[in-house]
Simulated assay, not measured.
Amino acid sequence: MTTATKDLYTLMSERKSVRKYDPTFKMTQAELEEILALATSAPSSSNLQSWRFIVFQDEATKKELRAIANDQEQVETASAVIAVIGDSDMYKNVEKIAAQNVAEGHMDENQKNTMINNAMNLYPYAPAELRRNIASFDAGLISMQIMLIAKEKGYDTVPMAGFDMAKFAERFELPEHHHPIALIAIGKAVAPAYGTSRMPVKDIARFI
């Protein structure tokens, strides 16, 4: 980051949901990988990082995806579409994650074993719906980070939940424990987003 980097509040204010993109502008895979890598600093339940991604750049595949996504134009015209997937079997990666925590100096062996034991005593026995809800919650956290990081880098985004999730899972051969949650179009805007209002805090929060 440089001193020219915009502050967080400015980015939050300037990030808008853009639906008109320059179809000739193409982001590189390296740029998209960097955005995803930075976004993984997001918190997740028990640090199990239940998010997965499919990144669509191929023009023919984006055209096919557009049909699954209720014919939303931005799916085809944006530089890429990031599908955010939730993994409800996230606990199966706990040993790998815990070992990496030790290797990077974040915990010792005792803490690693505690993390593994806690996860394996809880998540395998939790109802499938609960694990799916946890994965959806984690996906929401990282999705916002993706959009803010993209804006800081000069790109525009729009999140979409309006797509046929069953058709998506079938077409892109998702395993049973992977659940499509959102699509994020990303690229360069050719028209500004609509301005939107927000309800005042007094109407949405109760302090007790």
Rank of each mutant, 00 (worst) to 15 (best):
A119S: 10
M165C: 08
F56G: 12
A42G: 06
L122P: 08
I82T: 05
L36E: 06
W51M: 15
R66A: 05
Q111K: 12
E73C: 01
M147S: 06
E31T: 11
T196W: 07
A182G: 03
A205K: 15
T3Q: 09
E170W: 02
Q111Y: 08
F56H: 14
P127D: 12
L38R: 11
A205Y: 12
D89P: 01
S79L: 12
L32F: 01
T2S: 15
K112L: 11
F137C: 05
A128P: 00
R131M: 14
T196V: 13
Q145E: 15
D22I: 05
N118H: 09
T61M: 12
L183W: 01
G105K: 06
I82R: 12
A99N: 14
E170S: 04
G105L: 10
L36S: 01
E59H: 13
E173I: 10
L130E: 14
K188Y: 03
A67Y: 13
A60F: 08
K6F: 02
A150G: 15
N101V: 03
D138K: 01
Q57K: 14
D138G: 01
I54G: 03
Y155Q: 02
E14H: 01
E33Q: 07
A83W: 12
G140Y: 01
A83H: 11
V102N: 09
E109R: 04
M27F: 00
R206S: 11
